[in-house]
Design a protein around this nucleic acid. Structure first.
Lengths: 97, 97
DNA sequence: TTGATAGGCAAGCCGAAACTTGCCTATGGT
DNA sequence: ACCATAGGCAAGTTTCGGCTTGCCTATCAA
């Protein structure tokens, strides 16, 4: 469960994909491909991005909905909220003024 | 910078090490080895744990201090606090009562 | 000083992960 | 009906991460 989330976040390309989805939710595979190439200059194939999206989906960080021949990808931040708490929980909360 | 933190957290053994340091801070390499073997039943060599600790240290999650022939490992949770905020930042903060 | 304890360095092995390549399915427009 | 667009599947390659093995250094105690 949490293992999938950490493994998904381990790759810099996947973190960039999450960034793009924060900026504009509900993008298709081709849109994400275009953004990664033009805005960040990384040259990867469409299948590479597709596989990254699959990893993000099994981690629960991306939820997909199909409409016709389009498949839209929505960001789901819920798995991100409890991740660090595993080690921050019972710590003395240092001065947070 | 953040890349090191995510890569460090990607491995389940390293996450277990952080758990052990939460439970008891300032352990030596041999102490951590013993705990991983006895409490969690994983059979890994001392060098494996040493390499894991090195990864955690370059990520800033573990800080070491040397005293004589002992090297104590202290947890540093600071890099964990801003990790998820990258994607949670401009999201509507749900009810935190 | 010798031995035991705590740790470090470096090369090598192996399996998993990232990426490619090639082909296939499905939807929509004209 | 036809073709272009959006996406999927599967095998192959290559790179990288985790782990081992073997040996070396340093500190302390007797």
């Amino acid at each position: 469960m949490a293992d999938d989330v950490f493994k998904a976040l381990a790759d810099p390309t996947r973190r960039l994909i999450l960034d793009e989805l924060v900026e504009r939710n509900g993008q298709t595979l081709f849109e994400i491909c275009g953004r990664l190439v033009t805005k960040h200059g990384l040259g990867l194939s469409r299948q590479a991005v597709s596989q990254h999206l699959a990893v993000l989906e099994t981690a629960g960080l991306v939820i997909t909905r199909r409409e016709g021949r389009y498949k839209f990808h929505d960001l789901n931040t819920e798995p991100l909220e409890h991740i660090a708490g595993r080690w921050l929980g019972q710590k003395a909360p240092e001065s947070t003024p």
